[in-house]
Design a protein around this nucleic acid. Structure first.
Lengths: 191, 191
DNA sequence: TTGCAATACTAACAACCGTTAGTTAGTTTT
DNA sequence: AAAACTAACTAACGGTTGTTAGTATTGCAA
């Protein structure tokens, strides 16, 4: 991807986070790039291509990360902690693209949408494997797995709603907070 | 609200959950109602009015519920359990409206959007009070409150992503699972 | 220096958008 | 019976949408 094309994707992601995919027009993107809408089409094939690129690039990174984690032998707690950490690192690294990945993929159409859902399912499956491993080890409570994975991922993804890179928390600290919360909950065991 | 107007709101909520607010046209809504788009305007003032009604009606119910819970004296764990339960009951009762409330309020404009955010903040404040109470009691761990509330609410709201009314779980059972998860986490304490 | 790819432009298109105006038929209220 | 209200219609509006066609300008490779 050429530098100019990459720039377009970044600008588009920012706008789509602000206004949503459907309300972000190619003229908006072009304007922010100081060019005409038609000129965008020297770089991109369609508006949806931008959306697809952002979504799938993010999916690629997440998937690659969790596959590596599950490839190497760790116990479930370590794996969960690593998975959460890499997920948070990716999210906080580009909040605009993250937002599009989490919320705007719905506006993909036909094949692309089907493909995206399949890719997301792969990721969730890898996550579920960690939960299953924990149950086998006895280190995790037995839970409804689909419920658990969706709940955990939603809690993790909520990070983009409040995280400010200019704030005092590092991404690693956020990951630690979340890991803690997901493992031990809110309740004080010494009460 | 007349029965016909209510019907329009339900149809609109269903479509907006399927396609998003921006991609749901008044012609779509009218078509689903077997009427012409212009005829809708005998019942509604604007497309945005529909969105606002759905969002604020939901906000009203949530707010009223948690104020009642916080009005009566219970300990923090009981309050949290009750708050989660009423939230889940409302969500599962109308998944379409819930989706619009959770995701599509962003498409409100100007005053309405400001007002909605303010209302949401009121709700989150009530939730935060429960967490604070728990800390004072010593029954909850000390946590970053804003983080905790957003994380908990995101986990709760994720219910609409997977819950099927035709499935085997009752809303109360979902609420119990979530309360359990949020209080004690995934980790097995006897390991 | 010529040629070519990259990148921008202007102009326009067909489709679709939310909404308004004006009208009509049927029902309810006075 | 007259008046008012309800809820539907057709027609059309001004604006916006993603996209295409055709053209000009640039900078680098041959």
């Amino acid at each position: 991807m050429s530098p100019r094309k990459l720039e377009i994707h970044q600008v588009a992601a920012t706008l789509m986070r602000q206004k949503g995919y459907a309300n972000t027009t190619v003229r908006d993107i072009a304007s922010e790039m100081n060019m005409e809408a038609a000129s965008l089409y020297n770089h991109i094939a369609s508006k949806e291509e931008i959306l697809a690129n952002i979504c799938f690039q993010f999916a690629d990174q997440l998937e690659q990360g969790i596959l590596e984690i599950n490839d190497i032998y760790f116990n479930a707690k370590e794996k969960l902690k690593m998975a959460i950490t890499q997920h948070i690192l990716l999210l906080t690294q580009d909040l605009d693209a993250s937002y599009v990945f989490i919320h705007e993929w719905k506006y993909l159409t036909d094949d692309k949408k089907v493909e995206f859902i399949a890719r997301r399912d792969v990721y969730e499956k890898q996550f579920r494997d960690i939960v299953v491993l924990g149950e086998k080890e006895g280190s995790f409570l037995e839970v409804d797995q689909k419920f658990a994975v969706i709940t955990i991922l939603s809690a993790i993804n909520a990070t983009i709603e409040w995280y400010k890179p200019s704030g005092s928390l590092t991404p690693q600290q956020v990951a630690d907070k979340l890991t803690n919360f997901i493992l031990t909950g809110l309740s004080n065991p010494h009460h």
